[in-house]
């Protein structure tokens, strides 16, 4: 997926190393292989590959990882811009 990159410095992914308990679930679930385990802690290898799916944050037992997940369809985003249109559908 190295050939596929979108904008940089936009993803909401944040990682607090002090809170990591080293369970390794983030490294397991990330479909872009952003995390790896080193010395009993998770390490962020490639933050710019994040597509904000939210799998790591959902499975992190100590909320060491946070990310605002969402749907990346243009149609959906336009619907959220319009007033009174919450819970728009996609996919």
């Amino acid at each position: 997926m190295r050939n596929f990159r979108h904008l940089e410095n936009v993803a909401t992914l944040a990682y607090d190393r002090d809170r990591c308990v080293g369970c390794g679930l983030c490294a397991t679930v990330c479909p872009h292989r952003i995390f790896a385990m080193r010395d009993g802690k998770a390490e962020v290898l490639d933050r710019e590959a994040c597509m904000e799916c939210g799998a790591c944050a959902l499975n992190c037992p100590t909320s060491a990882i946070t990310v605002t997940p969402g749907v990346g369809c243009a149609d959906y985003i336009i619907q959220t811009w319009l007033p009174g249109k919450r819970g728009a559908s996609c996919c």
Binding site: M1, F4, R5, H6, L7, V10, A11, T12, P31, H32, A49, C50, M51, E52, T68, P69, G70, V71, G72, C73, A74, I77
Partner: peptide, 9 residues
Amino acid sequence: TPYTSPSGV
């Protein structure tokens, strides 16, 4: 696509 983030889009 499986790689664009909502924030980026």
